[in-house]
Amino acid sequence: MTVGSQLKQTLAVLKGVRGTLRIYANQAQEEEAKKAYGEGLEELKAIIGDLEERLGALEMAEPQYKGS
């Protein structure tokens, strides 16, 4: 498995987590939980952004792996 596809896998996991966190942030009854989920969501968005940028750079450098 190439670095690019590994990174894609990690990204997929993180995006799955992001989706679930978003549901929880909306569904949680306690103010404290709502806040924690919301903050977690924001942090996760930033991390995903970083990783996507890195993935873009990888694909530019090694176009043969694009889409794999």
Binding site: V3, Q6, L7, T10, V13, L14, G16, V17, T20, L21
Partner: peptide
């Protein structure tokens, strides 16, 4: 599962 996913991603990033 969610926690596990986050843990896995964290380990992945450390490895990268």
């Amino acid at each position: 599962l969610l926690y596990g996913g986050l843990e896995k991603a964290q380990a992945d990033l450390t490895k990268y």
